[in-house]
Amino acid sequence: MSEDRRTFLKEVGFAALGLGCGFPLVRAAFAEAQHGTNQDAEPSSQWAMVVDLEKCLNGEVRAACVEACHREHNVPEIPEADDEIAWIWDEEYKHVFPDQVHEHTPAELQEMPVLVLCNHCTNPPCVRVCPTQATWKRESDGLVMMDQHRCIGCRYCMAACPYGSRSFNWRDPRAYVRTDESGQPLSDFPTRTKGVVEKCNFCAERLRDGRQPACVEAANAVPGGEGALTFGSLAEPDSDVVRILGEKHTISRRVNLGTGPNVYYVV
């Protein structure tokens, strides 16, 4: 009997058990809500990013960010737009900040390319709707995490995200992951499987080692791109992000929705 089948049978057993005693289940659920998920608890710290729109006008900078991220995380390159997966990409200013443009906004500003990625919201709607806690807000540092082992692929989070930051694996991504000559993927970051949702993870795997996210590093490496992206903790008063937010005019995406995005843009 295969591993999958065995765990599946076990899970079905649990499911039957769960259904058989609906009431205790509901109680357990409440207990989980009180202790387990900590939806309402403020994270003790919160990573944030500041994007400098002017420095990001340089196409090389943006391309370097996208390339570094997608390479680092083995993001597949799927040619069909309907199935395309992206963690960080360009969008036009008028679509990123629909409330900031009016009919007299100059066309070049309306169509200005802006880097977009997951906002790691303070009050993330995707986390609120997930039926399995496959996506959750990490208490220690405020990252909106994904557990690819647990995701059931219902795509409720994609309906809930007001930023279009999530992609679903409509097909097996492995065939579209870039590899070197020997067929080895370019990074050792696990790829995803078909039928799960994925998104930017603020480079949790790099933060663990005390490194900066891949896109930030890549932008800094491009001449003229130094400081295009700044990353840091909002809990540290002397961090670069806190300093920029205090000094410059910054905006974030669709603040009226109350999600509390943690990616800011210097206008």
Binding site: M1, S2, E3, R174, P185, D188, P190, T191, T193
Partner: peptide, 15 residues
């Protein structure tokens, strides 16, 4: 043992 774990569908085998 006739089991087929799916670890390597996603995880990358070290070179």
């Amino acid at each position: 043992a006739n089991v087929a774990p799916r670890c390597w569908n996603c995880h990358i085998e070290p070179e």
